[in-house]
Design a protein around this nucleic acid. Sequence first.
DNA 1: CAGTTCTATGCCGGCCCGAA
DNA 2: TTCGGGCCGGCATAGAACTG
Length: 306
Amino acid sequence: MHISRLDLNLLVVLDAIFTEDGITAAAAKLNLTQPAVSHALGRLRDVLGDPLFERQGRRLVPTPFARGLIEPVRQSLRGIEIALAEAERFDPATTRRRFTLGIRDVLEARILPALMHRISEVAPFVDLAAIHVDRREVEGELAAGRVDAALDIWLSLPEHIRQRRLMADRFVVVARSGHPRVRGHIDLDTYLSLQHVLVSARTTGPGLEDIELARLGHSRHVRLRCQHYFAGCRVVSQTDMILTMTEHYARITNRPFANQMLPFPIEGPGLDAYLYWHANVENDPANRWLRGMITETMAALPLRDI
DNA sequence: CAGTTCTATGCCGGCCCGAA
DNA sequence: TTCGGGCCGGCATAGAACTG
């Protein structure tokens, strides 16, 4: 008989009948009804071609075949139990594995230094990969396990994608320090009359700030569209164009430049960062550890200076 | 002999999975 | 998406053996 023909759970039933000395008691131990265990024994009898237990009066007595089988079966079940218990333990100090985070450059620069520092302290053999995941693919990548967790702004995802809010953020407007029309603050009229840099990985389409402006019936002139905020800030430092971006990231990318950072002239859309993971790994010790590292890192980040 | 205890069995509904 | 087959477990109950 090939093992693939055997429902290995039936061996658990066999062990229980042996240990509890009867079908009724075994059923109680397994949280099943007596007929369920009797059916299971019937299937095991079929597949093994031996009665396994025979009735002697009211008791059930194992056949020689069953007696010979029980010890190896018990040892195997114990081995499986031990292996499963091992798999459930996750020891960051010794584990060698690579976690993959779906994360956008804006958050990447903000969290990775502190996160990597924290992970290095407690998990010397854990590697991290931060990759770009299209917003439309977040659910699929998490479901497939190609990404262990994702960080992004609020996304409307199905219930089996779990989420947790990590930190608040808001829009700021970046302009060069000697800008002739911007000093200390910027009002909506000035904002709309100036030329804009838009940073986006996509070739066309509005930014979040454009969507927000359109909602209020406004529009702006995007003169330059580019891929990276660093480049955008550098352009801003040498022109009279302005750039709208999130505050935390603006503080990082504007360090080399003497650019001003000003409040966005309208009430901005929600830019809070969220952590996303799949319900499948909700209780996976390794994934829980990773999520813990991320949330602790975010909570410990200073809000203003980074 | 009636009541109790225990296993076996027929039948049914629910679930899963593969094929159409 | 639907349908059918296979599997599993539960309910009801038959049947056997034991007990007082």
